[in-house]
Design a protein around this nucleic acid. Structure first.
Lengths: 143, 143
DNA sequence: ATAATAAAAGACCTTTATGTCTTTTATTGC
DNA sequence: GCAATAAAAGACATAAAGGTCTTTTATTAT
């Protein structure tokens, strides 16, 4: 459905939200072990999140990743757009080039309903809301 | 969302439903031009549909693809399973290995709602219902 | 029989996603 | 300054999806 990169990024952001503060940043080592994600691959993903400004990092001893002003309020949808591009929801599931409400493919309505539901959920939920759920033990970030 | 193969297969089945009868089969040439799908790639996809028995074909002059007893009643979901495998709907969107109602990822509920809606639509709609829509001019198979 | 036609089959190529490894750069504590 | 640490950066590897090309096989019409 979505790329692995998206799942890795989202879970990492929530993990860092729950485990970082001014003193203790979260290193790649801890992240990749805690979430069972390949170390170096995760490195690139995190780089990209930092580059997009929704997370901060610092090098050197006691360095690592930590939340900034934007992190908690970042909608899940923003993360998807960073990792998978804005196209994900725009393209026709049957691969028809110009498919829209006035010139629909035979599955257009069904897909649109599903898509809108996902868009709704992903734009309302943020890193903060997910972190709160996980903190309350209602949901989980890893096996 | 789904593979291109799935879209190609579904559109081809509907196209053949609308354009074949005992006399006139639909050849790859016509299919690939009519639906703007790469000729040889489509060949393999069609082979697979024939192998799965939801479509028939015959070689030689005036050969081509044509509907059989199963074609019209094939649910869209069956086509998806043939082209993309049954896993598509089973895996967690965040990539967590064991993610289910009792051990959910933070987005589990939202994804489940979307997935169930799609499953519902895809198991109820068949090649026949889609073909009827297209025949009535309510929806389209190509740009 | 032979030639033409068209699907079946399979070898190969390209791109994208995913993942690994090594080197560089910034920061810290001594 | 120097060594240790950890992210940044980039080269490289692997697998899957998507696509092209050629050869084989079955069918038909002459």
């Amino acid at each position: 459905m979505f790329s692995k990169t998206f799942g890795y990024a989202l879970r990492s952001l929530v993990y860092i939200s729950l485990n970082s503060n001014e003193e203790a940043r979260v290193g790649l080592e801890q992240l990749s072990k805690g979430l069972d994600i390949p170390h170096h691959f995760l490195g690139k993903i995190m780089q990209n999140l930092v580059k997009h400004g929704i997370l901060d990092s610092i090098k050197g001893p006691n360095g690592g990743f930590y939340v900034n002003a934007k992190t908690a309020e970042t909608p899940v949808l923003d993360i998807l757009i960073i990792t998978d591009g804005s196209l994900v929801f725009d393209q026709c599931a049957l691969g028809i080039k110009r498919c829209n409400a006035t010139h629909p493919c035979p599955m257009h309505e069904d897909f649109a309903t599903c898509r809108n539901g996902m868009l709704q959920a992903m734009s309302h939920k943020t890193v903060r809301t997910l972190a709160e759920e996980v903190k309350a033990g209602k949901s989980f970030l890893a096996l």
